[in-house]
């Protein structure tokens, strides 16, 4: 008999009640349980960063958390970053503008990581940005476009505030 639990979790502002097997990772629950396939599972041992989501606003690896551990918590995935009408977030817009993605596999983890990072560090140096994404592996872009996008959105946010 599989060990299961009932959980209630808010994902991208929407409340979900589900019965999950306790060994199910948060990432697998989001993809298979809720159909939110924007979160990508890469290495599944915490190294590649592709599966990063925000739990209660903090960026975490969804492969290194169990779904059952999010009971009563709030999760934000890449699907939750844009406006309801599809308007991209400033960071997503900057990724588009600066070619911050090519194949797109690392993108959800990059976006969720940098969204949390820029909220806490609104005026980062290039080095800070590179360190922030040092746990997110991208094999296409060489990171330059991603770093440019993050710095551009930080600059725009500074002007706006």
């Amino acid at each position: 008999m599989a060990d299961t639990r009932d959980i209630e979790v808010t994902v991208n502002g929407e409340s979900h009640a589900a019965n999950v097997e306790t060994r199910t990772s948060l990432g697998d629950f989001l993809r298979h349980g809720l159909g939110l396939t924007g979160t990508h599972m890469g290495c599944e041992h915490g190294v590649c960063g592709a599966c990063t989501v925000m739990v209660d606003g903090e960026a975490v690896r969804s492969c290194l958390m169990l779904a059952v551990q999010t009971n009563g918590h709030e999760v934000t995935t890449v699907e939750g970053l844009a406006e309801d009408d599809g308007t991209l977030s400033p960071l997503q817009e900057a990724f588009w503008k600066h070619h911050g993605l090519q194949c797109g596999f690392c993108t959800p983890g990059m976006l969720t990581s940098l969204t949390a990072f820029l909220r806490d560090n609104p005026d980062p140096s290039e080095r800070d940005v590179r360190e922030a994404i040092s746990g997110n592996i991208c094999r296409c872009t060489g990171y330059q476009g991603i770093v440019d996008a993050a710095l551009d959105v930080a600059k725009t946010m500074q002007k706006g505030s």
């Binding site: 915490g46 960063g49 990063t52 903090e58 960026a59 975490v60 690896r61 290194l64 958390m65 990581s113 990072f117 922030a132 040092s134 746990g135």
Partner: peptide, 9 residues
């Protein structure tokens, strides 16, 4: 120690 995402947990 790891990265900020792993230090969060």
């Amino acid at each position: 120690v790891g990265h900020f995402q792993t230090r969060n947990r």
